[in-house]
């Protein structure tokens, strides 16, 4: 079956990201496909490389990046939600004059529009929402 996942909450504050990650692993373990993972609302904060959680805690951004690398996942951060919350790639950082090195999008994530969310709803057998 073809799944897509929507993550609507930020890391650590809310279980949404942890649950989505575990669900994604289970989906892949069972031999299903993940079409896309879309990060919206505070969920975009899962995609910043600048988080530094304590060493004895899990690093959610790293877990997502590693899962994406291992399974060629498409991790998409909503551009409008990301701009509000200061998550930028090179192009966006430059476009908004935020200076050299301001880009903070984490490896394996890409920034794109809300159309990607609608499209994954159309293309997937199941869209599973993790949020409040």
């Amino acid at each position: 079956m073809k799944f897509s996942i929507l993550v609507n909450e930020g890391p650590y504050t809310h279980q949404s990201s942890d649950s989505a990650l575990q669900f994604a692993r289970a989906v892949l373990d069972k031999g299903h496909e993940i079409y896309r993972v879309f990060f919206y609302h505070d969920g975009v904060n899962n995609g910043t490389r600048l988080t530094v959680p304590p060493v004895d805690d899990r690093n959610l951004q790293k877990r997502w990046s590693e899962l994406a690398a291992a399974h060629a996942l498409d991790l998409v951060v909503c551009i409008a939600a990301a701009q509000r919350r200061g998550v930028l790639d090179e192009g966006e950082a430059k476009r908004h004059g935020k200076g050299e090195g301001a880009a903070n999008i984490a490896p394996g994530f890409r920034i794109s529009g809300l159309g990607q969310l609608i499209e994954m709803g159309i293309q997937s057998d199941r869209l599973v929402v993790f949020g409040d």
Partner: peptide, 19 residues
């Protein structure tokens, strides 16, 4: 919270997909 506003943003973008 921002949910209502950002939900509207999805609805407006989604309208272009003629679902």
């Amino acid at each position: 919270t921002i949910y209502a506003l950002e939900s509207l943003e999805v609805v407006l973008i989604g309208a272009a997909f003629e679902q």
